[in-house]
Design a protein around this nucleic acid. Sequence first.
DNA 1: GGTTCTTGATTGGGCGACCAATTATCATCG
DNA 2: CGATGATAATTGGTCGCCCAATCAAGAACC
Lengths: 202, 202
Amino acid sequence: MSPKVGVAPLRREQIVRATIRCLARDGYAGLTMKKVARTAGVSQGILHYYFADKRAILVAALAAVTADLDRRVATAQARGSREPRTRLRALITACLRLAVEEREFWIVFVEFWGEMMHDRRLRAINAALYERMRRQIGTLIAQGIRAGTFRRVDRLQAAAVILALVDGVSLQLTFDPKAFGIATAVQFCEDALTRFLGKEAS
Amino acid sequence: MSPKVGVAPLRREQIVRATIRCLARDGYAGLTMKKVARTAGVSQGILHYYFADKRAILVAALAAVTADLDRRVATAQARGSREPRTRLRALITACLRLAVEEREFWIVFVEFWGEMMHDRRLRAINAALYERMRRQIGTLIAQGIRAGTFRRVDRLQAAAVILALVDGVSLQLTFDPKAFGIATAVQFCEDALTRFLGKEAS
DNA sequence: GGTTCTTGATTGGGCGACCAATTATCATCG
DNA sequence: CGATGATAATTGGTCGCCCAATCAAGAACC
């Protein structure tokens, strides 16, 4: 059934990439195996050689998108300073930039939100992503608290609030791009963050 | 083609209601005219008597969902006190409660986010909703500023941030209901709000 | 009795999945 | 090194199904 190893996980990636492009172009409801095959430049039959069914391709697509977000955040973290405040800002900026720079990925991500409620596997992938994010942010917050930069808060709950803010702002950025640009968005998050975590208001 | 007036916009509402239930149950991709008809307890043919096509039904469904949110907010506002701070809290609570109490509507709303990016009409309905919300919140903020309760902020931008927070928190509430309940969510928004708009930290 | 409303069967098309046949890959061995 | 055969990869066509949309005919209404 499934190919063994090594030879061509390239094909899988190629197919997943095409799937993401199709989802971004035509939406979840408009996704067909035919379009994916055409976009990937392969035959229809091959899709079922590398994936059990359409659902499996979608799962792989969501996994790819979340992996990309992970990678972006990790890169931003690796480059930044050691200061918790700065690292936290870098993390948030990395997330917000996704919605602007990697528009295809972000669109697909939002589309999956709608389908998660009807598919356990999609839900699990998303839950794992948010779990990782909460832990990362939580760690930064804990460091900030220890360093005296932040006030004492429940680190995981604060992380959840920050994630919520980032998601919401990204959505606004997507649906009302004229309301404010990414620079303003980052500034907002920054401001909200300062006031939410800071020990004192200006 | 289309029915004149009066006699049975009941049917339209009945169909829209069934559509929303189907969307919440099976998702956007799983929506079929047959299911809608069955759920509404009518024949398939009648759907095309009251609506031009499937798309028109979906547009009506989104309109219904947004109208419900408007109604909820209006009710919460009418009941509350005159104090901007209190009214703002009531508005936010009303939005958050949607995600918990009217779960079907909220699920459908999220599903539409994914499709908006591929349909102008859906996008327009959503944009109008957020426009209204921003204006309402903006007005409350302006009152608060005038009354000296809030610090001076760009009212519309602050409104956008609040909406973003509410959307994001609602999402978290949906996907990770174990992370925190609605009470905590309201508390968070309240806290974030106090620090974001307040003149001073505790 | 004419208009509005409703039905359920029909239609043509596109879907996901499947598969037999073909080609490419590559380790093995003469 | 070059031929060989097994296995992996790929194709394009086919299958049955179900979809949205249509429509002629009938029912309900006033």
